[in-house]
Design a protein around this nucleic acid. Structure first.
Lengths: 152, 152
DNA sequence: TGTGATCTTTACGTTCACGTCAGATTCAAC
DNA sequence: GTTGAATCTGACGTGAACGTAAAGATCACA
């Protein structure tokens, strides 16, 4: 149920130092009740959060600072969930929070879609280049003397 | 026809320092005939090469060192083109060069495809989350008292 | 032939994202 | 309650990818 920092690091493929660093810069929340000196303990949810952080860092190629603001979408949604469990918040406030979360989501989506499109373009180009290379090899194997006839 | 380093930097959206740095680490070829002290001059092809470098760096998220080895595919192909223009190279050597280039291309393609797939997955997840958020907002606007009935 | 803008090399500085070390502390297990 | 492994805090170190400053040289143009 509760893992220590070394186990978490092994689980997600990183180091304790990195986890502490992420906490230091506010990318991971620090447990509010932990007295200085005591060992950190992590729930499964926190491990998942870390996995998500590392995944986004890798896929989006943004700085940890940008990533922090991007991930505020999740904080907003967490707050929404928390507020939905209480009855004393008005609908106006709820709409506000949801709208905010939606905005963050849209920013993430835009970033992801743009990169996905660029990558698709690159993949296409690479495939074309590859095709040409393969064709040339086939020509070579069919008849070495025909090589000069196909210009790139 | 020939641009200076400042113009090139403006064209591709970087700085002269970065261009010199890329040359320094061997990511961009240095003109062999330039005496020390004379200004660097760039052809359109070299500008394109720089654009490609920056594009791959951004999209693949690899270090400049990895990028250098990845880009050796282009060098290999350049060498093939050069050798194809001469007649004194045997078919064996040509096949060798083409095969090498093909290997590099395959490595690039694998990298690109993997990242593209990951990004697609992420995009899908974000879309789902977004849908849920929108639905909840619609519910709120239809009837604020129904809010608690839809759990995330 | 000047002259100002741009470029040259050299070298040290900076930011990010951690690595590494030290010395003390905590924890799990015996 | 002791011991050994893991963790804690704090601090300094490091590599990658450039930024920046200095002092002089080169280039485009009048």
């Amino acid at each position: 149920m509760s893992l220590r920092i070394g186990d978490v690091a092994r689980l997600v493929g990183t180091t304790p130092r990195t986890i502490r660093y992420y906490e230091e810069i506010g990318l991971l929340a620090e447990a509010p009740a932990r007295p200085s000196g005591q060992h950190r303990l992590y729930s499964d949810a926190e491990v998942e959060r870390l996995r998500e952080v590392m995944r986004l860092k890798d896929l989006l190629g943004v700085s940890l600072e940008e990533l922090k603001t991007l991930l505020s979408a999740e904080e907003a949604r967490a707050e929404v969930r928390a507020q939905l469990r209480r009855d004393d918040v008005d609908a106006e406030r709820r709409r506000e929070l949801l709208g905010e979360a939606l905005g963050h989501l849209d920013r993430q989506l835009e970033l992801v879609r743009h990169r996905a499109a660029e990558l698709a373009k690159l993949e296409h180009e690479l495939c074309e280049t590859r095709k040409r290379a393969k064709r040339k090899i086939r020509e070579l194997e069919a008849d070495p003397r025909l090589v000069a006839s196909s210009r790139e």
